[in-house]
Design a protein around this nucleic acid. Structure first.
Lengths: 347, 347
DNA sequence: GGCTTGCATGTTTACGTCAACATGCTAGTC
DNA sequence: GACTAGCATGTTGACGTAAACATGCAAGCC
């Protein structure tokens, strides 16, 4: 007697198809299709029969078949490094909401780390995804240098104004934000402003850095050496300890709120008062910045609008195809709170 | 003479298909398929010709056709309210990374707001997505009460231990976390511990609340009235102002770090010292908590592990089909920092 | 009554891929 | 030399849907 080992469940049955619904309702698949798509030229009685059959069988349309037929997926790919920075997270949130409102879904394609290799591998991955378009939330220069080319016909929007001119771009006004921050500190009477920048390869980091430098130069002020962080509060803290030891530093512009938080923490630890001894400005306006101690003066970015614009432009490209490399810069504004004040020896 | 208005580009040509590649390489589509799938039984010379043709034409496999053929999408749907809470964001991050490692992509299905109606509408949406399984990052009770049923055959994992027993569950150990926090404050010598809870409908919020209460009762301590926040730092700040006016409050357990931050900010404002006058414990261990002022004692959650476990269990269900409602509780640990200390009048 | 018109419904076909089966060539065996 | 085994490659068909085209019936018109 032979023991028959049951074959490892060869994949549970597929769901019911239009054919099943059609059979049960006694109509053709085409009529089912018409009901499923809400076309009007169906007898109410027939429609009801079909709807009931769908209900009973638990029919749900097969998206793959639909996509195959129509050539459209109604799905957008998003490539990004990490959700762990506030800006990325909030931008993704904005994009997701805007996409959902337009009836598109979102496929996340994570990039392990900000290296050329990881980006190329993500692109390879992306190319095989069922997407109608792509939003790149990664450092543009890595896009430009990637060996893997994005498929030519595929609509792309880049959220980083450092991108090659041939893609449409959406970004916050980094330059204006850094200018506002630096100017604000100068206006308070500080001789100059020190800067804690983001990591080297980052485009927003360099934009903020350049704009800070330009603003100082425009006012004929000394441009102090740069502090280089990596966006994290921990890096801000490490640099903050150094800042605390240098009494000549009275004004610091941090390239994001998390680093500003770390700096403030180091200053507290070292017994330096904010803003009496040192003034701090951040960048992002995180939901928590208002509850930092002291509440942080910072540059507010409208991430929801960035997400919304990105989707708008991408859908325009997808649905009407004229690939015009638009450049959409979203305005920022300075939010004044308690972390900034006049310098220690001001009149 | 008739002006012919060109019809609004009826959708640019589709990308090249296997047939195009086959034609160019002078082989059959099946051979192209074999090359595309890395099968070995192809003459090296033929393979090269096919690969070159793919290269030239910029061929990328059509996922919809593949999915249609195989009945699998290699895609997982994630339903969640908002990315704006630290826990959600980090869990999503963990899930995304784990899914990518397993060769699956992620489709986000946002839920506008935590109402029954929005959840039902998201489910309707979800049902039409091309997904092989679903991870629910929403309050379980809204799932249970939804009028829209999830399709019966579809594998589901819930990240919320309040879920119905018929779905597998992954969650942080909320109960143990709240116990650790409360116990720590009692051990320091505080008579009792006050609690700032999360919003009413939230399951993690009630778990933490109940465990705090149980721990106090187990030690025969008074259970003070509850403060009710909404997870945001702003709500913490508002409640913190009240706490600051009540000198009998010496120890506070906040249900998350953001609210703890808000509370501390209000205490600073009111001139109350932390931890000399009031001790605070949070929950989450945000990346920034170490840089709060003072650095926050809090309960660390391993969100990456939650994401990883969720994917593991879901893939097991998808690929091997035995739907066993597992319950996977991820351990937490207390991180001691500077926001807690002995009570004001301790010996 | 013979005709068109309009509308509900049915039939056919193609979308791109890949499993299953078919073919045909080469090399090895007696 | 006849036969077989093994392997590269080709052909067919099905997955579920929807556009395009076809059918067939009833109402309206002269």
């Amino acid at each position: 007697m032979t023991e028959t080992i049951p074959p490892r469940a060869p994949r549970p049955a597929r769901g019911p198809s239009m054919a099943d619904v059609a059979e049960r309702a006694g109509v053709s698949t085409q009529t089912v299709s018409r009901v499923a798509n809400g076309l009007t030229n169906v007898e109410p009685a027939t429609r009801d029969r079909v709807l009931q059959a769908m209900q009973v069988l638990g029919y749900r349309p097969n998206k793959a078949a639909r996509a195959l037929r129509s050539g459209r997926f109604r799905n957008i790919g998003i490539t990004m490094f990490t959700l762990s920075t506030y800006g990325n997270m909030r931008t993704l949130d904005g994009i997701t909401v805007a996409a959902a409102a337009a009836g598109y879904s979102i496929t996340l394609v994570p990039v392990r780390d900000p290296t050329q290799e990881a980006v190329s591998s993500a692109f390879t991955n992306l190319v095989e995804q069922a997407v109608d378009g792509i939003i790149l939330l990664i450092e543009a220069h890595l896009v430009d240098n990637s060996e893997v080319e994005l498929p030519p016909g595929l609509p792309v929007v880049v959220v980083d104004s450092g991108a090659r001119a041939d893609y449409p771009v959406v970004d916050n006004d980094q330059t204006e934000g850094a200018r506002l921050a630096t100017q604000h500190l100068l206006d308070l009477g500080h001789d100059t402003v020190w800067h804690v920048a983001g990591p080297e390869g980052s485009y927003p980091a360099s934009r903020r850095h350049e704009s800070w430098r330009d603003t100082l130069q425009a006012h004929g002020r000394a441009v102090p050496p740069l502090f280089r962080g990596d966006w994290t509060a921990a890096s801000g803290h490490a640099l903050g300890l150094e800042i605390a030891h240098r009494p000549e530093i009275t004004a610091v512009f941090a390239a994001n709120d998390a680093m500003a938080l770390g700096i403030m923490s180091a200053l507290h630890e070292s017994g330096r008062r904010i803003p009496q001894d040192v003034s701090i400005v951040g960048f992002d306006d995180m939901a928590e910045s208002d509850s930092f101690w002291p509440p942080l003066t910072t540059v507010h970015q409208d991430f929801d609008l960035v997400g919304q614009r990105s989707i708008e432009i991408l859908l325009e490209e997808i649905e009407h195809a004229p690939i015009v490399p638009v450049r959409s810069i979203v305005p920022v504004r300075l939010v004044l709170r308690a972390s900034t004040g006049t310098p220690p020896h001001a009149p």
